[in-house]
Design a protein around this nucleic acid. Structure first.
Lengths: 335, 335
DNA sequence: AACGGAGGTTGGAACGATTCATCGCGTGCC
DNA sequence: GGCACGCGATGAATCGTTCCAACCTCCGTT
């Protein structure tokens, strides 16, 4: 592998000068610069990122650790983060904890070894223990799609209580008096908050807490949604309004309901959450609560960069974005 | 940041010994080992990956460059590659060229600077020029979902001609005598091969080449599919059988067709390609050509690891996997 | 003529780990 | 008693950069 020394020798200058040609070209005379440049391209010299990292003490990448890359929502978050990071000349390493605490821990220690600039993370570990590790190692991080109880942590999230309320209000306005919530693992704050929002909407409408029943899914994916859908159909009386914690679940439910020849939305209205692209593309387009996923990723990355730039002068912020109800066929014209 | 020297000092040993404790614990006496270990955890020492990389000359990551992370097909490929790489103790850096040649070039040079172990790539640049760069830099790479004309390149792909034929044969067997192919950018080999397969099936059935007409989409995504769907509906006579280069396109078409209240499959049969999870989850489940995406990612990673391990003794191989038709409601019972 | 400064270039000291030749020491054997 | 040997531990060299103080040369000023 050809290094900076080889270039220096071939060009008849010192390594310091070659380094200057690369990093501060204005310090080098026109003539030397072009000579060195030509040697660089002739030898096909590529500078070693690890060597400059070693010297600099930190790498030029930020890590993004998400719960489920199979969920297009997180793909959007990733693309937002990536764009912002690359605008600042940094790379993004996207990793998938698959909601597993052990994977999360493993990745976080990988990040520490890599001396990443910072970490954007949607934690799988609800105890926040793995974040303590990050903190103790002095690695800046920003929570994504999650707020921390601890105020000394940056976070970007979307108000899930508001989102849950929007969804339930919509169903109530359509005349439904009872709603089934298809939730996921209850230790996920997203799942809990959306449920809380729905409950609040029911209470505001003067309906009792019992008008919200729950069908719980193992995971937040389509297969779990199909499974939940089958259980939904077994309920008696059959629910007429369903609110799912997530579009993947909703698509699964929709599929199960369709297979049973129950008409959507006439016999059953369905509302999802996230407004992934496939929600709109479903044959009965899914009403959903849109989250500004790309913006969330972008903001999170920007806040992280701000923190790494300013070091001490940085003030931790909790940014909370607002969700938006997108009404489509799966809930329209019911009752 | 605490380094190996701090540990050595605190433990009263040399840095070499600390390094041995970490990398070859059997060379160190029981007593020293435990003492050093305890200092390591007391100080929270984390070894610097860049320093070891610098010494080792190569990093412990492989790169995966895909065309579109918004396509669940590639998410599956990534998960397969990731699993295989991590089993070998390597990390995967997943990047998205978004079908842009310039992005691709940028990423490839980033990979070179990072001295990645190897690259798994679905090239956006059909000229294969960017691959030459890789080659000249001595970075091993494996083509994913693409075969190379050049035999001195490893590749894992799925036979797209067979896939296209399967799709068309299915439609022909259902009685259709004329098929519309919704293709994408014609410089993508996938798009061309699937079309060629469909043509072959028509020829085998004794139908003229004109029985395949084409509607071309700008990109291979849902929005382009909706657009193509609208154009489809404007054709006269209205097509009864549609084969899409991609499930994203098919979902878009399905949506447009549904909006126009044309019954699927009764009035129009639709077949997609990739069998992404959302294809099955569509309310009219989509008939599709399944590709072993996870296996493809896994195989590609394994072949890359094989090449990096054996260096010279490696024989380049072109693995071609077989696709499989998955029949669902969108094409059943037609005619 | 001496001085100051600017523009270019140099050489070497880090950065943090790995690796390897070497060394000290105790043991066992002749 | 001398020697070989093996086990543990050592210390220095090395990887490829960046950064900085020092230096040289030329030129204009006093």
């Amino acid at each position: 592998m050809v290094g900076i020394k080889d270039v220096a020798r071939q060009a008849g200058v010192s390594v310091g000068t070659v380094s200057n040609v690369i990093n501060r070209p204005d310090l080098v005379s026109e003539e030397t610069r072009t000579r060195v440049q030509s040697v660089i391209s002739r030898l096909g010299y590529i500078r070693s990122e690890s060597a400059r990292q070693l010297r600099a003490g930190a790498s030029r990448i930020v890590a993004l650790l998400v719960l489920d890359m199979g969920n297009p929502f997180f793909v959007d978050v990733a693309s937002g983060a990536e764009r912002a990071a690359r605008a600042a000349g940094l790379g993004v390493m996207v990793c998938n904890s698959a909601q597993s605490t052990s994977e999360e821990v493993e990745y976080l220690s990988l990040f520490a070894e890599q001396r990443v600039r910072g970490v954007l993370v949607t934690p799988a570990d609800s105890t926040g223990h793995s974040l303590k590790t990050l903190r103790s190692q002095g690695i800046p991080f920003v929570l994504v799609d999650r707020v921390s109880a601890d105020a000394a942590v940056c976070s970007v999230s979307v108000d899930d209580v508001v989102g849950g309320r929007l969804a339930a209000q919509h169903l109530i306005a359509a005349g439904h008096r009872s709603i089934v919530y298809v939730g996921g693992p209850p230790d996920l704050p997203q799942v809990r908050d959306r449920r809380a929002g729905a409950l609040a909407a029911l209470a505001e409408a003067g309906l009792p807490a019992e008008s919200l029943t729950e069908v719980s899914a193992e995971r937040l994916d389509v297969a779990a949604g199909r499974d939940a859908g089958a259980r939904l159909l077994g309920l008696s009386p059959r629910p007429t309004a369903v609110f799912c914690a997530n579009d993947l679940l909703a698509l699964g439910v929709l599929q199960a309901v369709f297979a049973a020849r129950v008409a959507v939305p006439e016999q059953m209205a369905i509302v999802g959450y996230d407004d992934i692209e496939f929600a709109a593309a479903a044959a009965v387009p899914l009403t959903s609560v849109r989250q500004p996923a790309v913006a969330m990723g972008r903001l999170a990355a920007e806040m992280l960069l701000e923190e790494t730039a300013d070091a001490e002068g940085h003030e931790h912020r909790q940014v909370v974005l607002q969700p938006e109800l997108v009404v489509r066929g799966s809930s329209l014209g019911a009752r």
